[in-house]
Amino acid sequence: MQRLRNPRIGIDQGELVLFSEFDSGGSMWTGEGARERRKLVTFQEAYRRPPAVQVSISLWDMDTSAAIRAELVTENITTTDFEVVFRTWADSRIARLRTAWIAMGELPFDDDWDDVD
């Protein structure tokens, strides 16, 4: 028999500078073709199962002489962390990018039993 109880919902959020390359001549600013940057974000508290995570751009500094091509996603979401991934391609030039994120999910209870198979 499974005991039912109200879930403990956790919300975690933050901002991070994903990259800043205009002053260092990095490939996001000077390169062409497919480019990617990723950063690992660790939650303040572990979730019971992987939470829902949403990311958004909170600052972008991009050259407008070419088309702005960008993709911002989350990957590898676990109970303790996730990766923010930014991609661009062709001749787009991105000087810097800051992202905001929020995670929502169920937190474990102190008296939860570990799953045993």
Rank of each mutant, 00 (worst) to 15 (best):
S56L: 10
F82H: 04
F82Q: 04
W89P: 15
A103M: 03
P51A: 02
A103N: 00
S27E: 11
R8P: 00
R35V: 04
G14I: 08
I77M: 05
W101S: 12
G25V: 05
E15S: 13
A34V: 10
G26V: 03
L18E: 12
L97W: 06
W89G: 11
T88N: 02
T79D: 03
E83Y: 14
R93M: 05
D112L: 01
F86G: 06
I9F: 00
P108F: 09
N6M: 05
V116T: 12
T88S: 12
A90F: 07
D91C: 08
P7E: 02
I77P: 11
R38Y: 05
D12F: 01
R3A: 10
D23T: 12
L72M: 11
R38M: 08
L97E: 13
W101I: 14
Q54H: 10
W113I: 08
S58C: 14
F82Y: 02
V85N: 02
I68T: 13
R5F: 06
L107V: 05
S58P: 04
F82P: 09
L107Y: 05
G33W: 02
V85I: 03
G10R: 02
R5G: 04
V17F: 03
N6T: 15
D61Q: 11
D91G: 05
R49C: 05
L4K: 10
T42R: 14
T64C: 06
R5S: 10
V116H: 07
D63L: 01
T64N: 15
G14D: 02
Q44I: 11
E75C: 09
N76F: 07
A95C: 08
F82E: 03
D114Q: 15
A46C: 01
R5H: 04
R96E: 11
R3P: 04
L72P: 06
T88R: 00
M28P: 01
A46L: 07
F22M: 14
G31M: 03
V55Q: 09
V53M: 03
D81F: 07
